[in-house]
């Protein structure tokens, strides 16, 4: 029962994070919301594992925690490269 309450609370947090991702003015708000969504997914998988009585879900939570981190760093590198290209195009030369 308590796992159900926690799972619902985490789902509410994930929904709020998604709304922030849609509303977020700058691209970095979106990355922040996706990062928070990812860490909450890890907790959600762990709580769901306990709720369904399947302790092997924790392996998935472990893997997801790492992949989420790598994903955020990859998106940051990608966005940073685009920002540099943009500033290079604007000046027309490699500043």
């Amino acid at each position: 029962m308590m796992f159900a309450v926690t799972a619902v609370a985490i789902m509410v947090i994930m929904a709020l994070a998604l709304i922030r991702a849609f509303m977020g003015p700058s691209v970095y708000d979106r990355i922040l919301a996706v990062n928070m969504f990812g860490t909450k997914t890890v907790l959600f998988i762990a709580v769901l594992g306990f709720f369904a009585g399947r302790p092997d879900f924790l392996d998935i939570a472990m893997v997801y925690a790492l992949i989420n981190f790598i994903g955020v760093i990859a998106v940051l590198k990608f966005v940073e490269r685009i920002a540099e290209e943009e500033s290079a195009d604007v000046d027309g030369k490699e500043n």
Partner: peptide, 24 residues
């Protein structure tokens, strides 16, 4: 568990109430 989920929800609400990216 309740304290953890309350904290998470307060963080999520903080995402909306703070005016600027860095405070979010």
């Amino acid at each position: 568990l309740l304290a953890g989920s309350f904290l998470g929800i307060s963080g999520a609400i903080g995402l909306f109430r703070f005016p600027d990216f860095y405070s979010r």
